[in-house]
Nucleic acid binder design. Structure first.
Lengths: 205, 205
DNA sequence: AAACTGACTATTTAAACAAAATTATCAAAA
DNA sequence: TTTTGATAATTTTGTTTAAATAGTCAGTTT
């Protein structure tokens, strides 16, 4: 695989784990390299021996989380009963992922515009995976004749993912938020399932 | 109606119009009260005779635009053929509204979080109107028996409006944008019509 | 009195700078 | 090869000052 030794990989993993905990609790900007090193009783300089800089460390953690997410999605989507269930799996898995790592993503909220390209690459990779898996699910269902034949399943999946993404809570005065608050995630989840329900019916004969 | 004289109202209108043009071309922060006054060959002080401050002036313009938008929507939605057409009217009207006034809304992009409450009130009012009109449209269609009966039309409308709101363009790497760029509005419009199509079918038997 | 202005004050923005915190490097040690 | 202490470089934070702009008001014009 990689060029490093086993020992090196283990240490890398330890660093990634410590960094993840810090980022998760305090967010990117409130986490210092000193603190991560301190947690592991290492010198800060060593972190730079294993990772080129702070943002690369963050991205490495992100990549790991994304890989786990993708893995989970692939496992679960191997054995779906029908199209709707497939999308429910996607929605649920993503929901869990976001709830669990909510604070980790403060980096996104802060940097809002101009996230580094590497982050976008990861997002794109996740999206690609979702597209492939869910497009296949649509295709299978179309072949089974349960829904209308679609010439471009990807387009449909993309549209639905966008639509789901748009679901927000109706806050007191009307939806004052760009990023959803953590306490609203459950409500969003419920509404998404409703939207999915209608959307799927719309694909049927 | 209001306490001011006709002359006063006319002048107020002139100021609103001049302010609108400035805000539309240069945005909120790049427009000075001096410039607006200059356009009308008035002293800046007079603007403060008619409006308490700059933000109130902006909001007054906003309110006017919103009123026009609401008016247009109500007129058009008086005579819709079927549910789908009603939503198409909403989508088209909003599309035109956003395209026409795109630069005016830079205020929103800049202030992003914490917009003044008065702005949210206007947004809420627009949303309320859309809710009332489109909920009625759903109810009528349900009564006609063209779609399944719905216990809470408002919930459905809210959900669809959210979903439509979520539709974004797939930029090069995957959708790097929070606010849509002006050049993407057409593509978004097209995708929204597709989403609408599926959603409406999902409401039918 | 209502509409209006010039000259003034108050506030906000920006630029320049210094101090502190944090990131990042590197020669040398284990 | 892995690790560190010391140090350099950069970023963030806070402060000051100057300029631009918002906002006020006594007084003039209609």
């Amino acid at each position: 695989m990689s060029s490093g030794s086993d020992q090196q990989d283990i240490k890398r993993e330890k660093i990634l784990e410590a960094a993840y905990q810090r980022f998760l609790h305090y967010g990117y900007s409130k986490t210092t390299m000193n603190e991560i090193a301190g947690d592991l009783s290492l010198s800060k300089a060593l972190l730079y021996y294993y990772f080129p800089d702070k943002s690369q460390l963050y991205i490495a953690v992100m990549r790991k989380l994304a890989a786990e997410y993708i893995q989970k999605l692939q496992n679960k989507l191997n054995k779906f009963e029908n199209l709707k269930e497939a999308f429910i799996v996607q929605i649920d898995t993503q929901h869990d992922f976001v709830v669990k790592n909510y604070n980790f993503f403060d980096f996104f909220r802060v940097n809002e515009q101009n996230l580094p390209d590497t982050i976008w690459d990861i997002i794109t990779e996740i999206h690609q995976t979702e597209m492939v898996l869910l497009s296949a699910a649509i295709q299978i269902e179309a072949d089974k004749g349960n829904i209308k034949p679609v010439d471009n399943p990807g387009e449909i999946v993309d549209l639905l993912l966008d639509a789901l993404h748009g679901v927000r809570v109706s806050a007191v005065s009307h939806k004052k938020v760009i990023f959803p608050q953590k306490e609203h995630l459950e409500e969003i989840h419920t509404k998404r399932l409703l939207l999915l329900d209608i959307f799927i019916k719309g694909l049927m004969y």
